[in-house]
């Protein structure tokens, strides 16, 4: 999931010859790889992020085991499911809500946006390719964390066998897409205010909680859960994990994935709209 994903979601490319499209795709793959490389550039950083996710996984396991104590089941969720959910939630949030700031914001702030606009590849695809690259760089440490959880028996294979695994994979990809698009829209506020730091922090906090990465929506009071189900955040983490644990299955699972796909489309349109407004702003005000 590098370049092609990015191009298809933006719709920024209009009717262009096939050779041109291929060149764009190559450029995007290069950008993605570059950001993988820069994410892995400093050894101490890589080691620390690796150890960090492992420690976090162990700690959430301990907390959730303690929370359950000897209670076998709360609101229909048993202890092992809750623990396993917490593990995957920690892993997901590690990838989807990192503390990095979007390259877009940095470029706007430094006034480099005018140069970026002149490049043959659109700015939005560029930004997405970078985000995908950074996300991809996080995959190895997450695989490690999942393996650790499997070894210490805090996680089981997904419900529903091979088909279940496939559904989980599809739902995860869509969840990542929703998260990246949300990130992009928030980062684009940089065109209106130079201080996106606060907005990104609020977004990160809301997304973490509302996506169900910290605590599953199952445990939330009815009114809260009802509200969160209408927001795009639950499509980032809660939906893939519900598929994983088989709490939605069969046609319900298909429906949940369809809702995710709908969010991808809606957010892509929103991003496009915000982007055209931003572009107008840059053109009128000269960046």
């Amino acid at each position: 999931m590098t370049g092609p994903v990015a191009t298809s979601t933006t719709g920024a490319t209009t009717a262009a010859p096939a050779g041109h499209l291929a060149a764009q795709a190559r450029a995007l793959v290069a950008i993605g790889r570059q950001s993988v490389r820069s994410a892995l550039a400093v050894r101490s950083e890589v080691l620390v992020s690796g150890v960090a996710v492992l420690v976090r996984v162990v700690l959430v396991i301990l907390v959730w085991r303690a929370v359950y104590g000897s209670t076998p089941e709360v609101v229909g969720v048993d202890r092992s499911t809750a623990v396993a959910y917490a593990v995957l939630g920690a892993v997901f949030t590690n990838v989807l809500n990192p503390f990095w700031r979007s390259s877009l914001e940095v470029r706007v702030r430094q006034g480099r946006i005018a140069v970026d606009l002149l490049r043959p590849v659109g700015l939005v695809p560029q930004t997405l390719a970078q985000q995908v690259g950074t996300t991809a760089a996080a995959v190895p440490r997450c695989v490690l964390a999942v393996l650790l959880a499997l070894v210490i028996g805090a996680l089981q294979a997904p419900a529903g066998g091979v088909l279940g695994l496939l559904a989980f994979a599809v739902s995860t990809v869509l969840g990542v897409a929703v998260a990246l698009l949300c990130n992009l829209v928030v980062a684009m506020t940089a065109f209106w205010t130079l201080e996106v730091g606060g907005a990104l922090m609020v977004y990160r906090a809301v997304a973490q909680f509302a996506s169900g990465a910290l605590i599953p929506l199952w445990f939330m009071p009815g009114w809260l859960r009802g509200t969160l189900e209408w927001l795009p955040f639950q499509a980032q983490v809660f939906t893939p994990l519900s598929v994983y644990f088989g709490t939605v299955r069969g046609w319900d699972a298909v429906g949940a994935v369809a809702v995710q796909a709908l969010w991808v489309v809606l957010l892509a349109l929103l991003a496009q709209l915000v982007w055209s407004r931003a572009l107008h702003r840059v053109v009128v005000q000269g960046g």
Binding site: V36, R37, L40, A41, R43, V46
Partner: peptide, 15 residues
């Protein structure tokens, strides 16, 4: 300073 690598898998190798 640490040696900077270039070429394929440069990141992993300098790691």
């Amino acid at each position: 300073r640490p040696v900077r690598r270039t070429g394929p898998l440069a990141g992993v190798r300098s790691l």
